[in-house]
């Protein structure tokens, strides 16, 4: 519990960062279930380069939270073997682009094991990946790789945009009988919220409406939710009320909430930091068009990263979806 308990027993809320919420989720999961183990690079004494595993080795011992050799494929493959013996590994990939060596293990084994064995061998594991940009990271430290994982059947892909969701979705991911790629938006790691932990929010597969509005639906997830909310406030000043949907999980994907919103607003912009071509945003746009065609007053548009390798830090503000780009895009939605 991060919330302080006052002398009369009332729970008081504290400002909690997303990193602290993730740390609390791991701590509570380790406490709740002996089969949960946390491992990866620098997760032990250091507590992870982002401190998400801070203090876990101290509290639970080397058996429960430990450092491994520096080899991502080995980490995920080793976790798959442990899962076959009933453990629930939670492994950390240090950065988005450093998770690529593990891609074959994730795509060919973790995602497929349940299917290829007709459900007899399951992979209840979580692969945590800090992702996304906006932190001034040098090359290979800012990729938005979520589309790669969402494209693989057999995986669930979750990505929180709020502190409460960081806690709740991670707990749910660890309890899930299926493998979960848990994408943590680095840009929101230090964002704080007044909350009480443990928090429980809606389960996987349920998008959240972060802001109500009747004129246009902004669909976002992870780091883009903050941009969407800021753009919605700016648009409101110009008389356009935007509804902001936070997907929370990319797989499973909540068709219903998105379609319901767009059917009401008749306009939709999808916002994603990832490179646009062949990505999640395109999939979302296609689905919206398919399900809401007769309600649409304008084509579904996207605001995404450009189709270039993630730029050097001095260029990244041009690359990332910004409030201005979202507002420009809203303006293109056939308002006349």
């Amino acid at each position: 519990m991060l919330a302080a308990i006052s002398q009369n027993g009332a729970v008081m809320t504290l400002a909690v960062s997303m990193v602290q919420a993730l740390n609390a989720a791991l701590r509570d999961a380790l406490r709740a279930d002996d089969s949960v183990v946390v491992f990866g690079e620098d997760v032990g004494a250091l507590g992870g380069v982002f401190r998400v595993t801070d203090g876990l080795t101290d509290e639970f011992g080397e058996d429960r939270c430990f450092d491994t050799p520096l080899a991502e494929s080995g980490i995920v493959g080793f976790a798959a073997g442990m899962a076959m013996q009933g453990f629930r590994p939670v492994v950390e990939m240090q950065f988005d682009a450093f998770a690529y060596p593990a891609f074959e293990q994730i795509a060919s084994h973790v995602a497929k094991m349940r299917n290829r064995t007709r459900g007899t061998v399951t992979m209840p594991m979580v692969i945590r990946i800090p992702y996304g940009g906006g932190i001034g990271g040098v090359e290979h430290h800012s990729d938005s790789s979520e589309s790669h994982y969402a494209h693989i059947p057999g995986l669930k892909v979750a990505t929180p945009a709020t502190v409460d969701d960081a806690y709740s979705l991670l707990r749910e991911a660890i309890d899930d009988p299926d493998p979960v790629v848990f994408m943590e938006p680095k840009g929101l790691y230090w964002a704080k919220a007044e909350t009480e932990l443990p928090a429980r929010t809606a389960p996987f597969g349920h998008a959240a409406t972060r802001r109500a509005g009747d004129d246009v639906t902004l669909v976002a997830y992870g780091p883009a939710v903050k941009v969407a909310l800021e753009a919605a406030e700016a648009a409101s000043e110009e008389g356009v009320e935007a509804e902001v949907i936070d997907l929370r999980t990319l797989a499973p994907y909540d068709d219903v909430t998105v379609a319901k919103s767009v059917s009401n607003t008749g306009r939709c912009v999808v916002i994603s930091e990832a490179t646009g071509f062949a990505g999640i945003a395109g999939e979302l746009a296609a689905r919206v068009q398919q399900e809401c065609f007769y309600s649409l007053a304008a084509p579904v548009l996207r605001v995404t990263g450009f189709d270039i390798p993630y730029p050097p830090p001095m260029h990244e503000h041009h690359y990332l979806p910004s409030v201005d780009r979202v507002l420009d895009t809203i303006n293109q939605l056939e308002w006349d």
């Binding site: 080793f78 076959m84 009933g86 293990q105 060919s108």
Partner: peptide, 22 residues
């Protein structure tokens, strides 16, 4: 017996992880 592995050597880390876990 693990499923027969058709990608090469990708089952080797599984064997290590399973043995360690056991």
């Amino acid at each position: 017996i693990a499923p027969q592995c058709t990608p090469l050597a990708t089952h080797a880390p599984h064997a290590a992880g399973l043995a360690y876990a056991a």
